[in-house]
Design a protein around this nucleic acid. Structure first.
Lengths: 225, 225
DNA sequence: CTATAATGTGACCTGCTGGTCATATGACCA
DNA sequence: TGGTCATATGACCAGCAGGTCACATTATAG
């Protein structure tokens, strides 16, 4: 949390600092952000910076609350188009409204996602290596559509992106949980972890919505082979 | 690519350097990794480092190819349990085998995902803020299960994680594509982008697999309201 | 007006960074 | 043996980092 002195500042000055910080984080991420540049670009003295904030992480935490707050205000100004939405319709409305918000605050969102989701995505070199695995997935999916397994209306690139997302989500989840364990190997192979993976993949396959098809039946069928 | 001198090194020395690099990246990410620490921990001189590599990004790129290579070898040693798998079964096998590999190379995987997917996840502070939005999702999903909308066998935490993953995936996708456009606002609101979002959410809802239910019908139904 | 407290300032500190280079080492060959 | 060449070394460099602090400025109160 910023110190009280920061909140006593005139609004204009505060915003100038925040904007400089946003630009800095958007460009360099958290660890490589430079307080020197931030103070230079916001036209305050170095010493002042440390009268407003503990350190640069403090600034970044403040950006998070700014985002949270502004997003909440934005949502309060909007209203769902209908009262009779089910949960999925509501979620869709939230996502779309969220996108509207994001596109009206691109720098702020970029700064935060730069920090939260890594520098990796921004390096060109990585793209090449990703490409190779993407191509593998692509042919796999094309085949699957031909075999009538994958919904043909879902276009190939989208399906690739979805499978990649899932694959990363599962990997990260397992990695992060696994790191907490004594014996990762054993933990990964445990029935509980395997079931977790199965469930995630089941949802990828059949979706979150409850349909007439029986979950348990499908689930058993798929996983015991 | 590392320079030839690196590949002329005795295997043992090479591995010592690689291991030091893995530890460094796992701990500090790419930008904050220190070549000084790497040379100190691998017991080589600073100058030698620059006879082996261009710079630290060069080292990291090499780690990527090491991962790629070792993973390929690992997969070649394994064989799918059955030849009659459909695509989803095959994908499940790939994911699980991948997890096995990851858990047998935890440091390497951690180093790479640390760089690729950001420092953000590793800071404790962020967890608190995420918590709040998670709780919102949680109550939403509990309600949805009660209303018979969400598959009750999918447990709440998993559903939250899935929705969060989707929400992030969509945001990132839109942000990255949107940044290339002149007018983000307009692009986000364009029919094409909106349809893309609809499709992703449709897949989240109904899954990738082709079922007896008609995609086009469902899709139309859901999105025109 | 003076006294006191709060805020603003930037020169300065130490520590570490990525990177260089003159020199030392030692394997190989004539 | 002496000469050559790839490799190894670490002292050294300039640059920038985050952070401090004695002092200047301004606001507040008596």
């Amino acid at each position: 949390m910023p110190k009280p002195t920061f909140f006593n500042l005139p609004k204009e000055k505060r915003e100038k600092i925040i904007n400089a910080a946003i630009d800095e984080f958007a460009e360099y991420g958290l660890e490589n952000a430079s307080t020197n540049r931030i103070v230079a670009n916001s036209g305050i003295a170095k010493g002042s910076f440390y009268q407003y904030f503990e350190d640069k992480q403090d600034v970044f935490m403040h950006l998070l609350t700014v985002l949270e707050q502004e997003k909440m205000e934005y949502f309060q100004g909007k209203h769902p188009p209908s009262m009779n939405m089910d949960t999925f319709q509501y979620f869709r409305w939230m996502i779309k409204t969220g996108m509207e918000f994001n596109s009206s605050h691109p720098r702020l969102v970029q700064a935060i996602s730069r920090v939260m989701f890594g520098e990796g995505l921004y390096y060109q070199n990585f793209a090449n290596i990703r490409e190779r695995s993407m191509q593998g997935l692509q042919t796999m999916i094309r085949q699957a559509i031909q075999n009538g397994e994958v919904d043909p209306s879902v276009d190939v690139d989208l399906a690739v992106m979805i499978m990649e997302t899932w694959s990363n989500a599962i990997s990260n989840y397992i990695l992060q949980e696994g790191m907490k364990q004594k014996d990762i190997m054993k933990w990964v192979r445990s029935a509980k972890t395997q079931e977790m993976i199965d469930k995630m993949l089941y949802v990828m396959e059949y979706g979150l919505r409850k349909t007439e098809s029986d979950f348990e039946k499908n689930f058993q069928e798929r996983t015991t082979l």
